[in-house]
Design a protein around this nucleic acid. Structure first.
Lengths: 147, 147
DNA sequence: AAAAAAGTCTACTAAATCTATATGCTTTGT
DNA sequence: ACAAAGCATATAGATTTAGTAGACTTTTTT
């Protein structure tokens, strides 16, 4: 499961993505709109900023904005930045690899082998999906359901 | 990430799968071979037994065995039994669904939509992969690598 | 210049979950 | 009768996650 941190980050990036090119948006506004605890969101956006994804502006009229076009930010990138795991086993993770203590020989582990496949399938989707895609998906769903 | 409980369960089932049709295997033996804390494994195997996957025999010469052929036990079944999540978001889970508190309208959430795809891709693999497949994978890897 | 608006940074706490251990009980074979 | 093994529940310990607090800096407005 993704952590709340990761989920909140994705939510916030979708909001910022919709606003790409416009004036900065305040943390408090995103927090209110998306029902995210403000102080928690502060930390998350700060991380994303320090990773170079967002710019920020202090003082009145300040806030956050995307540095890059939303189509150039992949979902998998966000998961990794916020520590959300992609692989379901540590011994299968590309970015957060850890040896399975209980495993004798990783190279011949059938369980591991199966979960490599799962990882690759997941990775393919999450690499191909950008923040812009998330926004597009929402738009299409709105057309399909609501008005 | 899968919990240790789930990982231990899979490990144990592979051992039991290799022995399908033979005499029962003791918890202590599986624990020693697979480097799993014995008391923890006790609980896990008990759960699997109570779910109808394993039979057990008490007393001297007792132990555990698979009730069904290893080809008839899917990996996804084990994940669900041991509480391991398949979906990466609670609002996307088929068996452990929970509403996202912070989400206004699930039907039009682009994030959710993307993770439905991830879930389906994962589910496909894990449904098609049985304990017998895990054993087969190990065998093939042994041929490829070791002697 | 002062005040207000907003982000920055670090530390801490609380809650939940996961992992593991302990203890005593029951069943079965010798 | 005794030992081997599983059954069942309770509890402790560790780790992670989620959230809160508070003091500080920068920028704009008045």
């Amino acid at each position: 499961m993704l952590s709340k941190k990761t989920r909140y980050a994705l939510k916030a990036l979708v909001v910022l993505g919709k606003n790409f090119g416009g004036i900065p948006i305040q943390i408090s506004r995103i927090a209110a709109e998306e029902h995210i605890p403000k102080k928690f969101l502060e930390q998350i956006l700060l991380d994303l900023r320090n990773a170079g994804l967002l710019f920020s502006k202090k003082g009145s009229g300040g806030g956050y904005g995307l540095v890059k076009d939303p189509s150039e930010i992949s979902v998998v990138q966000i998961l990794r930045l916020t520590g959300g795991p992609v692989a379901l086993l540590p011994c299968v993770s590309l970015n957060f690899y850890q040896k399975c203590e209980e495993c004798e020989n990783e190279d011949t582990c059938g369980i591991r082998d199966a979960f490599v496949e799962v990882r690759d399938a997941t990775l393919k989707i999450l690499t191909e999906t950008s923040i812009a895609d998330l926004i597009l998906r929402e738009k299409k769903l709105l057309e399909k359901f609501g008005l």
